[in-house]
């Protein structure tokens, strides 16, 4: 069984590469049982969403009016 530390590594890597079938299976089993890692999973997804939104917002002048 995966440790939480390994799960954080796989969750990060899942944003950068396709996990193997076995990795995915182990991950899902762990996430179903571990609330901390399930939260971590959602937080990683949020981080990606926030980053993409941040990058896209550079071209929106309404945020650019904000002073530094």
């Amino acid at each position: 069984m995966l440790s939480c530390k390994e799960v954080t590594r796989l969750l990060s890597e899942s944003q950068d590469r396709e996990l193997t079938l076995f990795e995915g299976l182990q991950l899902r089993m762990h996430l179903a049982m571990c609330k901390g890692c399930a939260n971590f999973d959602r937080q990683m997804k949020f981080l990606r969403k926030a980053s993409r939104q941040y990058a896209a917002s550079v071209s929106r002048a309404d945020r650019n009016d904000r002073s530094d």
Binding site: S3, C4, K5, E6, K35, G36, C37, N39, F40, R42, Q43, F46
Partner: peptide, 14 residues
């Protein structure tokens, strides 16, 4: 030491 979250640092629900 067993590589699972210590209780005080377990990721919280945001």
């Amino acid at each position: 030491p067993n590589a699972h979250w210590s209780p005080q640092s377990r990721p919280r629900d945001w």
